[in-house]
Design a protein around this nucleic acid. Structure first.
Length: 287
DNA sequence: ATCCAGGATCTCC
DNA sequence: GGAGATCATGGA
């Protein structure tokens, strides 16, 4: 991977295991728009980034100002998880596993984004029993209503927002859950930056104490917000693909699926989860 | 029109 | 622990 700059853009060549479309559309993030094939805009850290890819080369730039190499390395290399060896991960999880091999080969350009825990917290509360286009719309509504320049609002900025206020933004029955999440963060019950000194078990307990966060959403937040890669969210899709392809079509409890994922994939379970989720969602009849 | 969505909660057993 | 009803919203 080589990073260079030209005009006011960043150019990366020799990109491996990275596809901007697969990264953004595999269900892990919500603030992005597809502008054309292999051409997207996305919002993170109060910045709108444009990204265009062709083969193993990609360009990244801002709309109104220069994106230099220092800033790209400071912010976006970590965000896109570009320093992790995904070739090794893919080999490891797909070894002696033809099912996982197919899932990886279907979208080998997936990367697990390092996203803001606070934004992920609210986003995945909103995701419960919801569709992705609607999740995106609700998050956009919240950003435009309370964020500075339509960036994701801070806990402070949501301090006095009521359930009724959220309801206007089309959150539906999740309005009170969002109020509770804001309160938990403002009370200091939940760290809103990645803090490796807090154990995953402790974080999980703290998350489950928030109304609207159950087992599945907690795993999503641990995975995408806090980077705890042994997390394994089990939604209807993952349950379906696990039962069909790993449990011989038999109905299986979430606890048993967690045990299986932990034993088979360990600290790479989250990567396996993301490949599987995207694979079954794009190929509902897959075997 | 009825069903359903990357679920969670409440109730009841 | 598990089964069933309910929860807003909007698209098919």
């Amino acid at each position: 991977m080589e990073i260079t700059t030209f005009n006011d853009k960043i150019k990366i060549t020799n990109l491996r295991q990275f596809n901007i479309g697969e990264v953004l559309e595999c269900g892990q993030c919500f603030r992005f728009e597809k502008l054309d094939n292999n051409f997207y805009s996305l919002v993170a850290f109060s910045h709108t980034l444009f990204a265009k890819q062709r083969g193993d080369a990609a360009e990244f730039w801002y709309e109104n100002r220069k994106l230099d190499i220092e800033e790209f390395k400071e912010i976006w290399v970590d965000y896109f998880d570009l320093e992790r060896d995904y070739e090794k991960i893919q080999q490891k999880i797909a070894q002696d596993d033809p099912i996982m091999q197919r899932a990886v080969e279907f979208a080998p350009g997936i990367r697990l984004l390092n996203q803001d825990p606070w934004e992920i917290l609210l986003s995945f509360i909103i995701s419960a029993n919801n569709r992705i286009p609607q999740i995106k719309q609700v998050i956009k509504n919240i950003c435009e209503a309370y964020g500075e320049n339509s960036s994701f609002p801070t806990p402070e900025q949501l301090k006095n927002v009521t359930a009724e206020d959220f309801r206007v933004l089309k959150t539906g029955f999740r309005d009170k859950y969002l109020v509770d999440a804001v309160a938990h963060v403002l009370a200091g019950n939940l760290p809103i930056q990645r803090d490796e000194s807090v154990s995953t078990a402790d974080l999980r307990e703290r998350l489950l104490a928030v109304k609207g966060i159950g087992e599945k959403v907690a795993h999503c937040i641990l995975l995408m917000g806090y980077g705890r890669y042994n997390s394994f969210p089990v939604d209807v899709w993952v349950q379906r693909v696990m039962e069909r392809l790993y449990f011989n079509g038999e109905k299986t409890s979430v606890a048993k699926i967690h045990q299986f994922a932990g034993e088979r994939w360990g600290d790479y379970a989250s990567f396996a989860n993301q490949y599987l989720f995207h694979y079954i969602r794009m190929n509902p009849e897959a075997d």
